[in-house]
Nucleic acid binder design. Structure first.
Lengths: 349, 349
DNA sequence: GTGAAAGCGCTAACAG
DNA sequence: CTGTTAGCGCTTTCAC
């Protein structure tokens, strides 16, 4: 294969069009005043020689590389993949290239990727901060937008994430609608910021309906399949009468809980109802399908890139955006509000 | 936030070190002969002013941008995310940045992304070709490596993919081992190249064991959940006695098949055994867990980048690499080889 | 071993 | 409206 074919430059175009380099440049960059005739000839010449702008050179001259960076924990995680996709699409619209990096929730890796981005001269970056490197980013003088739940720990930076309050509200309302006024809650470990935010929203909802918050049963564990399974196991070991309703703060935990229900010889949704949170694709394939509150991953990615571009253009909005979550209704929630209707399956047995 | 802090250049470093621009450059690039003293002073100066090489400028001068491109159908698809991750990691090791694009299996989008890559002056690209744009890539004179099953349609290009023959062999062997000598096969539509390759391998395995290939039951459908569900439905409508064994050419179809089994009031693995192909994460959360042959996505991505780098460096190997698949054993396959052992669950009912 | 100088492809004053 | 000129930051001859 012919490697390194010499690519035509603006000089070739100018020569062929019989104009000066700068006239050609003006036409090609679409700036300044140009006579129709000149424009025509330059455009034709460019076409003829197969000219393609060298963005490396443009970048060098203008200080704008046309590249954006994205640093997320793991592209292999469906939520983050979704975020990446949103960012990609929005970047493509803006004719920007996106450099994507995975940090594995590791501060050192994150720092390394940030440095790489800086060296690559990206115009700005969207990052889900796992450590305090964001301060470095700021010091670099690189425009950036933060995403995810940990984003708000950092003052003075634009951020976009999902609206946990609205999400919990949505979930609790749905639970109430289906006849589960006071679900048991499975949340993450104490150390995590998201836990607090989630719980606060739950309490707000409970107190707003004049229910006794002390009746709320809370179990916690790691944000994993096993964490959810163990937490659910504990609940089941304790409580053995009547229907149990669960609101899990994370789909992996919800799926783990589902497994625990089976382990205990119970059925979902007949004996136990489960509502998840995240909207991961795997929830569609569990049995029963997992009803869940979906985070708008794609929208978050897209919005973050949008904010970033604004910031790069100097229209720094520096805002905190919270995007609404949506309900994905599948089969893991029994309809207790109208007992005779949906529970026929259970009744038949 | 301080936008556009002037970043120190090689000139600043040279001035501070009290040497010429070129000496500084030599030290910083690690080329040419330099006295220890000079090197020391330059390095110290660089450190002091916080110098960082401008890769845009380097790229312009050297014709190497240090960037690689990756074009896959959809970063949101777990297999492709895995490929992207492998590529990312390998690129990071080589100190390259990776531009990632999703083509949505759309030729036009693919072409657009390829053009963007070309304009961004990437040094090479890894692409899963959905259309015939790869010819363009070749014409561009851009080094590239193809990935995925459609890759081999293109002559004269390096490619890396999974070893379908070995994968099917592995699956069939496992099926035999578990007492399912002649599974029904659910494959993709006739138009797809992967179908043929899969079926050929199945036939090879069957004939090698002196079984009658005419006994092989083949159903096809789209490579989707619904496709698998429908195909399985047809099988179930026809065949109603004894255990049914299924080898699906794709996990989504396998999961669809699982659903069809439930639709028909049957149980997996007691009445129907299912073996999938892909190893998608969701297979861990179905009930029962899906036994599947996993494609080495991450390894494919990593290997592709490796080949690409070799090719860029002029050691064009131009080879076709086939990476082996592995078996993920979960619960969707009954052990028919030793009836009394595992089928106790079914027996109890 | 080191420095001076040319130039990668493009843009942006500055004259004309 | 157009051409001339001077760089952006770096590498790379080519002399010394």
């Amino acid at each position: 294969m012919a490697r390194q074919v010499r690519r035509p430059t603006i000089i070739d175009v100018a020569a062929r069009a019989g104009v000066s380099k700068s006239s050609a440049a003006r036409v090609l960059a679409g700036t300044g005043n140009i006579s129709d005739d000149t424009r025509d000839r330059v455009l034709k010449a460019a076409q003829a020689v197969g000219y393609e702008r060298n963005y490396l050179a443009v970048g060098m001259r203008s200080g704008r590389s046309g590249m954006l960076g994205l640093v997320i924990p793991d592209i292999t995680n469906p939520f983050w993949a979704d975020v990446a996709r949103g960012a990609q699409d929005r970047a493509a619209e803006a004719e920007c290239s996106l450099l994507v990096f995975s940090s594995d929730w590791d501060g050192a890796k994150e720092a390394a990727h940030l440095r790489t981005l800086h060296r690559a001269r990206v115009d700005g970056a969207v990052v889900n901060p796992v450590a305090d490197n964001v301060d470095d980013l700021g010091r670099f003088g690189l425009p950036f937008v933060l995403i995810g739940s940990s984003a708000e720990r950092f003052a003075g930076a634009a951020s976009v994430g999902s609206d946990i309050g609205q999400a919990v509200q949505l979930g609790m309302d749905h639970l109430v609608y289906k006849g589960h006024p006071l679900p048991h809650v499975i949340v993450g470990p104490k150390s995590r910021l998201a836990r607090t935010r989630f719980l606060n929203a739950v309490y707000r909802h409970v107190t707003a309906r004049d229910l006794d918050p002390a009746d709320l049963v809370i179990e916690d564990g790691e944000y994993t399949f096993e964490g959810g399974r163990a937490a659910m196991g504990r609940i089941l070991d304790r409580h053995r009468d009547g229907h149990i309703s669960i609101f899990a703060a994370n789909d992996m935990m919800a799926i783990g809980a589902l497994m625990a229900v089976r382990d205990h010889g119970l059925r979902c949704p007949e004996d136990v109802s489960i509502l998840g949170f995240d909207g991961i694709p795997a929830g569609a394939f569990t049995w029963p399908g997992l009803t869940s509150i979906a985070k708008p991953g794609r929208a978050i990615g897209a919005r973050a890139v949008e904010s970033l571009i604004d910031e790069i253009d100097g229209q720094a909005r520096q805002e905190r955006v919270h995007l609404p979550c949506t309900l994905i209704e599948r089969e893991s929630l029994a309809d207790l509000a109208q007992p005779p209707r949906k529970l026929s399956v259970a009744g038949r047995n």
